[in-house]
Design a binder for these strands. Structure first.
Lengths: 310, 310
DNA sequence: GTCTGTTACGGCGCACGTAACAATT
DNA sequence: AATTGTTACGTGCGCCGTAACAGAC
């Protein structure tokens, strides 16, 4: 029995389906099925009533209920132990210094670090924003300990792990009256607000357009702004439509003036990575933050949608 | 993180050394080292102060203390969950029927079943003793659900797992005045009490003697009895020396009239196996008993020596 | 010599991904 | 058509064993 299995089980329950849990945990559906099967074999009882096809959430059996409470308690104990053990020996608590690129820095990091601080009040977390080109260099120079960016780093000497799926979505003012998925043809005619071409997001957008036979020049670009939040506010004010990271929306979800508009055939996938120097070992705080970010607790409520594409 | 690792860690602590834990858990020393290394890497802290060579027990670090309490609690919770889940669904509790050969039946099973009943008062356990030749057949015929024997079964259709190391040891009356390890030459002259040649233990003894160039005919056999307890009582009464399963001694450890006498170069290793039909699935009680027997809790206090040879 | 724990190396099983499928909405 | 869960199959990593080693009694 592994704690990962407990985590998996708890995730399936809170997600309501194997598939959603798989997306959240970066696992394929078949892996979920297989893992749950071995778990049930190990326990000797069926734990979940599957509901293939039907959109109803999976329901735990009687044994599954017992197991669920056990799993949640064991996971909480585990996190408590990890925290206690880490804090026990690392007597002079070094602060966790985090470097981040603008996009995750304006959406993900605020949520993540706030939740982390709530659960670890004795630790200090410092966040500083850099442009993507500088991030890896400054990380290697030791200016900070952990990096968060949407670009996969090339440098060796840096190890990284994917921990968040954060695609670009098209947002439009509600009063524009768009409904349902629109076609690429319709997209071309909409007034588009974009960021400066130097950033990672714009590069991804252009690539995605190219894949479906479009270029930025063919679009009806009406405005160019400098940051994600600028796109968001411009769209909110009704100036046009624009692409932003989905996480940015979730972090500002009280906004009722805008809506997400799917575009047929156009998908701008994007992952967020956490980086650290290969050479430097974890300090206690670093380890806790890393584990916390990889986990799913902090995503709940704010980023409660499925966090990864298939 | 796996519960097996927690179990390993707890076992190392209670045993006091890697090697002893390895013997108890049927693992090699290098595996213990490796497993503990990955555990410590996972936790991010050194958990045990090693004491190579020195006979002092290994000591947990500060982090190790925290981890130990976590491990013990988690394991207890796990067992509780397993028990609750098993009992939840198996409404009509079928009794666990166990068949056993004479030797383990007179030493191991009484201890094991008593402890098991204490922890699972709602379950009923029925033990019946058979000769080795009948055990497998009756198991396959469904006369009982689990078998316990010192002979490795050949039949297919039966799956088994080794769960106890129970070598033969030479016992002698204290008043005989033997001390320290004796030689094979000295053994040949001692008055020896043996069992009937049909049993598994005698076969093992003869094999072991053959390996060091001796045969039973060369020994000074003064008495032949029919069971293990008969050997024990005869030796206790001072009639001679004899070989008995070590577990039998442990189960009767208040006996101060006899002593164990090591014999140089002579080792009669012997394992005890638990059997079940391959086809039949576990019932709840079966599963609990199987898991309990494989575990180490019931061995403490009574069988507190190392339970497995290298 | 006997016990401890470590390192190096090889094999085998387990866990995961991909692909193709069935079933429900 | 889209989604959910299942089965079949290939692959890579991790666990464990064996062997050889170093250090403390």
């Amino acid at each position: 029995m592994r704690f990962e299995q407990l985590h998996l089980f708890a995730t399936i329950l809170s997600c309501g389906s194997f598939a959603a849990a798989g997306r959240l945990l970066h696992l394929s559906q078949p892996s979920i099925t297989a893992s749950l099967n071995v778990l049930e074999a190990e326990v000797g009882q069926r734990l979940l009533e599957r509901t293939p096809g039907q959109r109803r959430p999976v329901r735990p059996t009687a044994a599954g209920e017992i197991f669920a409470t056990f799993a949640r308690k064991a996971l909480a104990d585990y996190r408590g132990m990890l925290s206690a053990v880490t804090l026990s020996s690392d007597a002079p608590q070094t602060p966790v210094r985090i470097g981040v690129t603008p996009t995750p820095g304006s959406s993900l990091l605020p949520v993540l670090t706030n939740k982390f601080r709530e659960e670890n009040p004795t630790l200090t977390v410092q966040v500083k924003t850099f442009r993507g080109t500088e991030l890896a260099r400054r990380l290697k120079e030791g200016e900070f300990d952990l990096g968060v960016t949407g670009t996969r780093p090339q440098d060796d000497g840096i190890v990284f792990e994917r921990f968040f799926y954060d695609p670009l979505v098209l947002i439009a003012p509600v009063r524009m009256g768009l409904s349902g998925p629109i076609t690429l043809r319709e997209l071309k005619r909409l007034p588009l607000i974009v960021r400066d071409a130097s950033g990672n997001l714009m590069r991804l957008l252009i690539q995605a357009l190219n894949r479906v036979g479009l270029s930025l020049a063919q679009m009806n670009v009406v405005m160019q702004v400098s940051g994600n939040n600028d796109v968001l506010s411009s769209v909110t004010l009704g100036a046009g439509v624009g692409f932003v990271a989905r996480s940015l929306l979730a972090a500002n979800r009280e906004n009722h003036d805008i809506m997400v508009v799917p575009v047929r055939r156009l998908q701008v996938a994007r992952y967020v990575y956490m980086l650290r120097r290969e050479s430097s070992s974890f300090t206690g705080g670093m380890r806790l933050f890393w584990e916390y970010a990889m986990g799913t607790e902090w995503r709940e409520h704010v980023f409660s949608y499925n966090t990864m594409m298939l």
